[in-house]
């Protein structure tokens, strides 16, 4: 088991952001988290790398990441050290998330150096080439700046720079929201392949049901900080939960052409 979290709560002041969250992930598991904006998905992702706001109150019955139990009252600072070493969080808008005055090669080399500080230059170069091949980028992106890359390519560069750190848990926070449909599928295909190959535990956060259904094996539906249901992606269409049904019916498709889409009640 890579990730075991029971009854995780997070509140900011008087507002409860996350309530009673339970997560269990093993290697090669792909969990998709679905929810509207404001349902707490990103906050959950950030709390797994120790990046909660300073005045937030957190508590959990169990918070175990990669076999280490963390007591949230005293040890939470140690969770922050996992960032970049065992847990990799990939952000949404890759073009902004990369330093605009650094070239791709510099970004990737920086990650490689952080992972293994004392190697020779030729080792770094070898790894660089290998990682580029893995994410499906050619060597011509090495000299480009982030603003010169397309959305999909920039996202792959960001993924590559995170993967270079050799994590064991991958969290992808809405990485396809800024991409067109074709690129989104390609990027998620890549993540799925890498997860299987390297035995990562992956969490895919999105608000796109179709993508999550296709590329994940478990789906967690969240609403206003709570887990509505956890269901396997094969059973998603047969879900008995009312909110999940609303989400499913809100998708536009050919059969519903000409009809008014149903709305999700507040």
């Amino acid at each position: 088991m890579c990730l075991q979290i029971k009854a995780f709560n997070l509140s900011l002041g008087s507002r409860k952001i996350l309530q009673d969250i339970n997560l269990e992930l093993g290697p090669k598991d792909k969990l998709g988290i679905i929810g509207e904006s404001g349902s707490g998905k990103t906050m959950l992702a950030k709390s797994l790398v120790g990046m909660v706001p300073r005045n937030a109150k957190i508590s959990a019955e169990q918070f175990k990441i990669l076999g280490c139990n963390y007591s949230l009252d005293s040890d939470y600072a140690k969770v922050k050290q996992l960032a970049g070493k065992s847990v990799a969080l990939i952000l949404q808008d890759a073009k902004i998330a990369l330093n605009p005055i650094m070239r791709t090669s510099e970004h990737l080399l920086e990650s490689l150096r952080l992972a293994q500080p004392s190697l020779e230059t030729k080792d770094y170069t070898r790894k660089l080439v290998k990682i580029l091949a893995e994410v499906g980028l050619g060597e011509n992106v090495l000299t480009k700046y982030p603003h010169e890359l397309s959305g999909g390519m920039a996202q792959r560069v960001l993924i590559a720079s995170m993967l270079a750190l050799n994590p064991q848990i991958l969290i992808a926070d809405e990485i396809t929201s800024a991409l067109d449909n074709a690129s989104a599928h390609k990027v998620l295909e890549l993540i799925a392949t890498l997860t299987n190959f390297y035995s990562y535990s992956t969490i895919l956060i999105s608000h796109d049901l179709e993508l999550v259904k296709k590329y994940c094996n478990m789906i967690m539906v969240m609403y206003q900080g709570r887990i509505v249901e956890v269901i396997s992606s094969a059973d998603l269409e047969n879900s008995k939960d009312a909110y999940t049904q609303f989400l499913l019916n809100a998708r536009p498709n050919k059969a519903k052409r000409g009809q008014i889409l149903s709305e999700i009640p507040c």
Binding site: G84, P100, L158, L165
Partner: peptide
Amino acid sequence: EYVITCKLKGM
């Protein structure tokens, strides 16, 4: 944003 990315890399 890129500062957050760096923090996520554990820098």
